[in-house]
């Protein structure tokens, strides 16, 4: 099994007053992955409000974004045999219905080189 991180991106803040249904849908999705024994780390949600960006020259700005409209709203790690299987798991995440997207990236081991499979 290899580990893949799923990075959730969104242009609206999904942690801002989610409905009961939305919460339930997200939990069901994550529970389904855990039920397949494919969850390596349930990860965390990331705040959009309590966020700063630090740049060279001691420039600190509010928010996680300045130029881009999208920001990372959370992440989790799955363990699957291939990246295709990880994509398959991500495909049913409700974030995709709200205009968000999910980036899937293989996690590299300390000695592992980076290459396309």
């Amino acid at each position: 099994m290899k580990e893949f991180i799923l990075i959730f991106r969104n242009s609206t803040n999904p942690h801002d007053n989610p409905s009961q249904e939305q919460l339930q849908e997200r939990m069901n999705w994550m529970g389904g992955i855990a039920a397949r024994n494919r969850l390596a780390d349930k990860g965390n949600r990331l705040s959009a409000g309590n966020a700063k960006t630090i740049r060279p020259g001691n420039v600190v700005t509010d928010g996680p974004y300045t130029e881009i409209k999208e920001y990372i709203s959370g992440y989790m790690i799955v363990k699957t045999a291939t990246i295709e299987e990880a994509i398959e798991l991500a495909r049913n995440n409700p974030i995709l219905k709200d205009g968000g997207n999910i980036e899937v990236r293989a996690i590299l081991g300390p000695e592992e080189g980076d290459h396309r499979p």
């Binding site: 339930q24 939990m27 994550m30 529970g31 855990a34 039920a35």
Partner: peptide
């Protein structure tokens, strides 16, 4: 629905 949510939490703790 409550039971399902509890199972969702449970399976996150331990498969």
């Amino acid at each position: 629905e409550h039971i399902l949510q509890l199972y969702n939490e449970l399976i996150l703790i331990e498969y």
